[in-house]
Each structure stands twice: as C-alpha cells, then as structure tokens.
C-alpha cells in the first residue's frame, strides 16, 4: 500500500480560472473529506481517476454536505438550504456529470435534487468503474488478492434504494480472488445500521446492535475481506470486526481501495 504522499487532485475553481471545464465533478462527500478511514477511499478513487487520465475536478472548500442526514432526520429546512446552496455552486460551474463514492450523496443528487431544479447526470463510482472495465480502459493484471476470499456488503442506498446490485459485483469479479455471498444479499441484504442519520446517534435500546448482526452475516461466509461501497457501511463493518476481535484476520476495504491496490496505485 502506498504511504501518505500528496496526490494531485484538480480543484474546480482553479480549472475554471484557467478557462478549463472538466468532464466530471468528483463529489468527495463529507466522509471522504473528514473521516480518517474513509479519506483513504477518496484517495484510492482519485488515484484511479488519475491513472485513467479522466478529466475531473473536486469542489474542495466549496463542497458542502448534500443535506442527506438532515433530511432523513426530519430537518427539511436545513436540507433544502444545503441543497439550494449546492445547486447554485454546481450550476455556477456548469456541472453536468457528478461522480460519487458515497451512496447517500448519489441517491440525493440523483433522486432528490431534481425536485429543486438540480439536474445532473449522477454516476456512482461502481458503475463508473464497471464501464471503464467494459471499455477496456481499466485492466487489472496483478493478482495480489488471489488468495483472499471477498464478500460484498450491499449498501441500502445503492441496492434497494437504487437497484444497483450488479455493478459492484462485476467490478469485484475483475479482481482475481474468491468471491462469496452472504445469505442475505442484494435486495435481501441487511442494513449496516447507519442509514437515515443513525450513523450520528446511539441506537435505540434493543437486544443487539444492527452492525453486529450484519458482521456476523459476513463472518459466516468465511471471507477474509469485507468489501463495502459506502462510508457509513465501512464504519459499521469495521466496528463490527473490532467488536468481534477479528480486525487482524479480516479486513474491510472499499471497492475503490481493492481496485487501486490491484493497480498498484
């Protein structure tokens, strides 16, 4: 794995000042910007974009929360303030294509911003990677995971919310390794427990934490890598592995990290 070095990530305002307009906006999301673990996922995806010579930029300091947790926690006012402000920024840069790594950002841009006149072509990174593989631009030659068993956890906001079940699996198929499914997968997948603003609060009283129940699903497969595609799922599954004292034998990686590592980026 690459040690910490500065990666070259183009910023929208800089490109615009030079009169340039990138093809894609890479929406990093709050977790990509601030969550220590998930920052590595943002880095991995940016490295992939650089590797593929994609014309893209990030908003950097001009990016702000999409409003998803606020809306799902009932604060419509705050959500719409965020959304309308973001739409102004996005339209100011004439953004057409948005690439997201976070499924919650993906869902809200794709399904909810249009109600507020924010119309964009929104692409989830798993779909994007699948297209790059199909086109032949993304080729994986290394087999560093060939001895690993990978199980994929469907994030609710990609899966049930938007019916993206196969793109992430197709991407994983391109990484030489053994793939196993949890009993509850695709539309039956159990939530990690963090959606709908749960991420930011203690769970209600119960017999068990949802993330432990889901981690047990993953452990049952015998996999040694849990692949996730959502920052909240990553926090939850990583916590689950810690809770089960399994973080040494079993790793939790995002699909972007698995691809970046396979490309030796």
């Amino acid at each position: 794995m690459a040690t910490k070095e500065k990666i070259d990530v183009p910023v929208m305002a800089d490109l615009f000042a030079k009169g340039k307009k990138p093809d894609y906006l890479f929406w990093v999301g709050c977790a990509g910007a601030f969550d220590d673990r998930y920052k590595k996922v943002a880095r991995a995806f940016a490295k992939i974009l650089n590797h593929l010579n994609i014309s893209y930029a990030v908003l950097g300091k001009e990016e702000s929360c999409t409003g998803d947790p606020a809306r799902r926690a009932g604060n419509e006012m705050l959500f719409q303030m965020q959304a309308l402000t973001n739409i102004e920024v996005l339209n100011g840069y004439e953004v057409k294509n948005i690439l997201t790594i976070c499924p919650h950002c993906y869902n809200i841009f794709k399904n909810e911003y249009p109600d507020l006149e924010g119309h964009y072509n929104v692409i989830n990174y798993t779909e994007f990677l699948k297209d790059q593989i199909d086109k032949g631009s993304l080729k994986i030659s290394s087999d560093i995971f060939k001895n690993n068993k990978i199980t994929y956890h469907d994030p609710c906001y990609l899966g049930r919310a938007n019916k993206i079940y196969e793109a992430p699996r197709k991407v994983l198929e391109n990484i030489p390794s053994v793939k196993v499914e949890m009993d509850r997968n695709r539309s039956f997948a159990l939530c990690c427990g963090a959606g709908g603003a749960q991420m930011f609060k203690e769970a209600e009283k119960g017999e068990k934490e949802v993330f432990i129940e889901r981690t047990e699903d993953a452990l049952k497969t015998g996999a040694d890598i849990i692949a996730t595609a959502c920052p909240f799922c990553m926090t939850m599954m990583s916590d689950g592995l810690k809770y089960k004292n399994k973080e040494e034998e079993i790793k939790n990686f995002d699909i972007a990290e698995l691809i970046a590592q396979s490309l030796d980026l």
């Binding site: 500065k6 990666i7 070259d8 990530v9 910023v11 990093v28 709050c30 990509g32 910007a33 601030f34 969550d35 920052k39 943002a42 880095r43 940016a46 990030v58 950097g60 300091k61 990016e63 702000s64 929360c65 409003g67 947790p69 606020a70 926690a73 604060n75 705050l78 303030m81 965020q82 991420m199 930011f200």
Partner: peptide
C-alpha cells in the same frame, strides 16, 4: 444539524480542511 448549518458537514470540521485528504 448545527454542524451542517455551521460547517457544512455533519462532523465538526472546518470547510477549510476539505482538501486535507489529498
């Protein structure tokens, strides 16, 4: 709510730090 309102993120980080991940 107050974090999103004040710093544009659910966590208490400054928007100035949004590129630190790079």
């Amino acid at each position: 709510f107050s974090n999103i309102e004040n710093n544009g993120a659910p966590w208490q980080f400054s928007p100035e730090d949004r590129l630190l991940w790079t």
